[in-house]
Simulated assay, not measured.
Amino acid sequence: MTLDESRTFIPVRIAILSVSDTRSLTDDRSGQTLVDRLTDAGHTLADRKMLRDERDQIADQLRAWCADPDIDVILTTGGTGLTGRDVTVEAHRDVYEKEIDAFGTVFTMISMQKIGTSAVQSRATGGVANGTYLFALPGSTGACKDAWDEILVKQLDYRHRPCNFVEILPRLDEHQRRK
């Protein structure tokens, strides 16, 4: 796992969706943490919204962003827990064409180092739809930092070796193209 300095950094366009019944954009620390980290890394904030824990509304927003050619990646924060109102994971899975199973596994491994067995309560997930990457992160600021710092900052950097999400981004929707 190295950074190949001979390759040019390619910024990606990232939309942030915070899911909460109690917060607004003005006090959304987790969403702001992701915004700060993605812009510090050289990526572009394509859009940012806040929605309540409503599965259909979340899925509709994800679909709208997946249909937008100016958005490459969607990060959601919040609604990944086990309570009755936590429906972000289900909304993501309503939209996914393919799930990135290892994302949740690697996130859990990282979380175990920080919070021990409490990591079992996280349902972080990732997937692909309509040529767009989607990642559902927990609502805690610490979890967002861990997901970004330990996984996403590397996988969203074209220079990361031996492989990364950016280099296959143009091929995510190749099955939809005419042959």
Rank of each mutant, 00 (worst) to 15 (best):
E5R: 07
I151E: 05
K98Y: 07
N164I: 11
T117H: 10
T83H: 04
L137M: 12
R7S: 00
Y133H: 02
T141A: 09
C163L: 09
E99V: 00
T88R: 05
L34C: 04
E97D: 12
K114D: 08
V106A: 13
H175I: 05
L38R: 06
S111D: 03
F103R: 08
A59E: 04
G142N: 13
L169T: 00
I10V: 15
Q113R: 14
D40I: 01
F9M: 13
T2E: 13
V19W: 05
L34I: 09
K98S: 02
D47T: 07
A91F: 09
A143V: 09
P170H: 15
T26L: 14
R177A: 14
W65I: 00
V87K: 13
N130A: 13
Y96G: 00
S118Q: 14
E54K: 08
S30T: 08
R29K: 12
R63E: 14
N164K: 11
E90R: 06
T2W: 13
I151H: 04
E90C: 01
V153M: 13
N130P: 00
A143Y: 04
R93T: 00
G79R: 05
K179S: 08
F135G: 00
A119Y: 05
L45E: 14
N164Q: 09
D56E: 14
D53M: 09
G84Y: 05
A124H: 08
T44H: 11
C163T: 06
A147M: 07
A136V: 02
T105R: 15
K49M: 04
R13E: 09
L51E: 03
S30D: 06
D173Q: 10
V89I: 15
R52D: 03
R48Y: 01
A119P: 10
T80G: 12
E174Q: 11
T2I: 15
I151N: 02
L17F: 03
T125E: 07
A46Q: 06
S6T: 10
Q57H: 07
D47A: 15
H160A: 07
D27N: 15
I115M: 15
V166H: 02
T88Y: 06
P11L: 12
R52A: 07
V12A: 06
E167T: 03
D101S: 13
D149T: 00
L137D: 04
A15I: 01
S122H: 05
D157M: 12
R48D: 00
G126F: 11
I74Y: 01
R52M: 06
F135D: 01
L34D: 00
G81D: 10
R29E: 08
A67K: 12
G104Y: 07
D173Y: 11
D101L: 14
V35A: 11
D149Y: 05
R178N: 05
R171N: 08
S122D: 05
K179D: 03
Q176T: 07
T8L: 15
Q61D: 01
V87R: 13
D4R: 09
